[in-house]
């Protein structure tokens, strides 16, 4: 299952809830303000680093670029995709759940 998260973890608990309620093996794509959850060294980074073993994390490149976040600032192991990649993930996974 593909989960999208569009909220900054500093603003709302959408990422935490997504991680609590997604099964191991899920794919999680951070979009819009959700991309701030991917920042290395932030207070919120543990949300992702604790789940890197059993979940695959992605961020939407256009949303990173718009916010001035270079890929060097991302937690290691997170993959960047564009909108085509977003669609491919949505096709590969049996359904999409949007955490807003």
């Amino acid at each position: 299952m593909l989960h999208t998260v569009n909220k900054s973890p500093f603003e709302k608990n959408s990422l935490q809830t997504c991680l609590r309620l997604s099964q191991p093996g899920s794919s999680i794509l951070l979009i819009e303000d959700g991309i701030y959850g991917a920042l290395k060294g932030s207070d919120a980074a543990a949300n992702i680093t604790e789940h890197l073993q059993d979940r695959q994390f992605y961020v939407l490149g256009p949303d990173l670029k718009a916010r001035g976040i270079d890929k060097s600032r991302l937690i290691d192991g997170i993959e960047i995709v564009d909108y085509d990649g977003f669609v491919k993930l949505a096709v590969e996974e049996p359904k999409v759940q949007s955490w807003m």
Partner: peptide, 8 residues
């Protein structure tokens, strides 16, 4: 086959 939602 897929329903994808965007919102706040």
């Amino acid at each position: 086959d897929r329903l994808v939602a965007f919102g706040d």
